[in-house]
């Protein structure tokens, strides 16, 4: 099992469980529907990676990539117009009125999260601020059919990861 934890301060975090993701792209269209994002910018994109092991066996892995709302966000540091800032929920918030579309954020983002639409200004995953404020999972997490995206408190997620690790260990021991 391999998972990545998207840090978002505040109450909940998004767990991205690559062992469950099958690259179905449902989170992408769900995010578009939820946020009425026009074609073009992809706040969420699932990328596929193909690997070949020493025996020649081929396997695929998938990684849903959106804004990780980093704790030490390089985009905030480089934005020349202070369009990016951390908000009260710990999410990296974009003030589009301040954005000049220079693309600095895209050059430093390790995840390729910043997107550019027809107006050539930056846009990205806002972290489903309203949903989190209402104690709902992010749209991508609620709408994921394979359970690869899960939204919960750090304590809950920690327990979840530990439990599945124990289950995997038990299965291997069989």
């Amino acid at each position: 099992m391999r998972e990545e934890i998207m840090m978002a301060a505040g109450e909940t975090m998004l767990l991205i469980d690559q062992s469950r993701c099958v690259g179905c792209h449902a989170c992408e269209t769900a995010c578009k529907m939820e946020n009425n994002v026009p074609p073009g910018p992809r706040w969420m994109e699932v990328v596929e990676h193909e690997s070949v092991d020493a025996a020649g066996d081929v396997a695929l892995s998938f990684l849903p990539l959106n804004c990780r709302h980093c704790a030490d966000a390089p985009c905030i540091a480089v934005c020349p117009t202070q369009a990016l800032a951390r908000d009260g929920l710990g999410l990296v918030r974009l003030e589009r009125e301040r954005c000049i579309g220079c693309g600095e954020c895209l050059f430093v983002c390790p995840f390729g999260a910043p997107q550019f639409g027809e107006d050539r200004l930056m846009q990205k995953c806002h972290g489903c601020r309203e949903r989190r404020a209402r104690n709902l999972p992010t749209a991508c997490a609620q709408y994921c059919p394979s359970g690869a995206l899960r939204c919960a408190t750090p304590r809950e997620l920690s327990h979840l990861v530990r439990t599945s690790r124990a289950a995997l260990g038990a299965a291997r021991a069989d």
Binding site: H25, A26, E28, T29, K32, Y143, C144, P145
Partner: peptide, 10 residues
């Protein structure tokens, strides 16, 4: 069980 698919959400 509460979810649709990439097509359904369109």
């Amino acid at each position: 069980r509460g979810t649709l698919c990439v097509k359904g959400y369109t």
